[in-house]
Design a binder for these strands. Structure first.
Lengths: 217, 217
DNA sequence: CTTCAATATGACTCCCGATTCACCTTTCCG
DNA sequence: CGGAAAGGTGAATCGGGAGTCATATTGAAG
């Protein structure tokens, strides 16, 4: 998981009933190649500019082969979002595993996310474009992400690590932060170190934004 | 600005040298109608699904008329983003004018943004899709927004209203929060009141997220 | 009342790209 | 080995939609 170069995407034979899951090892390999190529192509050209021919060319297969494994352009996008969603969640979950408290988890999680985005820029574009191709898949992604996140905050609340509050709202705020910070500082310009970003957010989590940090009555 | 039904978009004759700025009142009116129709059409169908014919139909003009005022589909999107950008910024600036301190400004700003998005859902979609059609215009939008925001935080820092810190990073985090909260709670589902959301964020700004809110050494 | 520039029209052209399909090649298994 | 299922090919189809253009209408100036 360190180099993140191998997008292992051959396992799940397709969530719905596509044209047909591969039945041989060769088929599985080809399908995975196409999926991988689509990730790169969508990530570079964008969903709409990318043609099926661009994907198949990148995968080194003929146009028709595409339809052996995917019903169409939209379906491969859906597949991709599901796939990439699992990847990030798994990656971040692993990075956070051995943390002592929520603050540390937030710090490590944010840093890991920024780093992941920097190394896998396609994730952002594929995901954000998916929103306008099939909103449901996009919502699923964030709702899945958010669900686990809320659970973690609930645990932290129980342990007395964070202030009681509306954790669902907090989670959407936190996801939004990461998203924008990633776009700006991991994808657009790396002119501020990830450490600086994490430190800034950490300070916000510890002390808030205002100076007169008085408890609520 | 209360009902926000009139998107006055006739003034700016076009930022660049389009096919020709309208030279008569009639022309200006028609151009504005098309722009307004494009906002609605893009906002509803999305940029790619929306056809020029959809826009002109909504505007009540012939297809060819479109090209009297805009060089093409991309250009009207650019125009739209600029236009809508001015609108939001002006609206939010007005809502924040008479605030006593930064915390209050953040609260009112967030509430105003959520409300604005609820009333003008097209803003979100047009803006986010523009990102993948012409990234520059999208960056311009957020950099313009962020610039003013950073200035406000700098003032607040000087006045001792907020903790010193990296205001640029903070601004991107704040913009990300608003964006996601708006998407989730203003556009997708209104199952949490704006008051509750604002209160949750306000608490974060005042007290942070963690319980042991100790100052840094 | 003319006249002309500005506008408006909508049928038509033209290209692009998703999808199809008839036909090969490889693999698997008795 | 034989042949059938799975996999692979790429040229051809087909529809949709952006952009064009020859023509018609408007309205303001003179």
């Amino acid at each position: 998981m360190t180099t993140a170069s191998q997008t292992n995407a051959a396992q799940a034979p397709a969530a719905s009933g596509g044209p047909g899951a591969p039945k041989t090892a060769r088929g599985a390999r080809t399908r995975a190649r196409i999926l991988k190529a689509a990730e790169h192509t969508f990530g570079t050209l964008g969903y709409h500019r990318a043609g099926i021919s661009d994907i198949t060319r990148a995968a080194g297969v003929a146009q028709g082969t595409f339809y052996t494994y995917f019903a169409g352009k939209e379906e491969i996008l859906r597949e991709l979002v599901r796939d990439m969603g699992h990847q990030v969640r798994a990656h971040l979950a692993a990075e956070i595993l051995d943390t002592d408290n929520r603050l540390e988890a937030e710090e490590r999680g944010l840093r890991a996310f920024l780093q992941y985005l920097y190394e896998n820029p396609s994730l952002y574009r594929v995901l954000q474009e998916a929103q306008f191709v099939d909103e449901a898949i996009y919502r699923d992604y964030y709702e899945a992400f958010g669900k686990g996140y809320v659970r973690m905050l609930a645990n932290a609340t129980r342990k007395g690590e964070i202030r009681p509050g509306n954790n669902e709202v907090r989670v959407w705020a936190l996801m939004g932060m990461s998203n924008f910070l990633g776009l700006r500082y991991a994808l657009w310009e790396q002119d501020v170190s990830f450490d600086e970003i994490v430190e800034t957010l950490s300070d916000l989590f510890r002390n808030g934004l205002t100076l007169d940090g008085k408890e609520k009555p």
